[in-house]
Amino acid sequence: MNEFLKLAQYPATWIAVTGVVYLLADKLYRLSRYFPLLNPVLVSVLLLIAILKITGVSYATYFAGAKPIHLLLGPATVALAIPLYLNLAKMKQYFIPVSIALLVGASVGIVSVFILGQWFGLSPMTILSFAPKSCTTPIAMALSQEHGGLPALTANAVIVAGIAGAAMAVPLFRLFRIQHEVAQGFALGLASHGVGTARAFQISDTAGAFAGLAMGFNGVVTALILPVLLATWYG
């Protein structure tokens, strides 16, 4: 056991373990033909938690080792500028309707968490962590950190929001007669980021393209309006 404990302190160990676990989770996801509950991030998180529990290694030890992976999140978020730029051209065609839907949707995504969270008696810190849950994970985590939430809680809330939106979207669209594929895709990308975008591409290429557009711009709009809404709601 002593030998193992030395290995747990060696930094490369946790980079390797995280990489292998993620590759396995990704393989499982592909084998299941992209079954939403087998989201590779969710499966990797649960598997790693199980590994840490079994081996008795602390989260602090794990995180110290896996930190180089975590640090790449910053530049990767900045790199989202490229798909965002490529989506700008699509925005031109429907500039006014899309801008209005974006502002309304982003606000509803945040304020509904304030209302529901208070109603269900969640702590202010949990509510803060959930407020950016419709954004793409890197932006949501950065916003959570910035405004005093818990990025770990946010990362998982974002995945749940993604899976839930992707699973509920088509029945909801049918029930409420949302038939326009631009509206369908845009709503999916705005409420459920990358997971919703993947689902939208199964509806049609147009739906997928507008989902990607909504995902990118929702991140920006949420970053801009969250401080304002927080100040108004809790000010």
């Binding site: 995280t18 993620y22 991030v41 990797s44 938690i49 995180f63 770990a152 809680l153 990362a155 998982n156």
Partner: peptide, 13 residues
Amino acid sequence: LGILFVPAGVGLI
């Protein structure tokens, strides 16, 4: 991109 969320996500523990 997905793997980059994992170290923070494990904080759920």
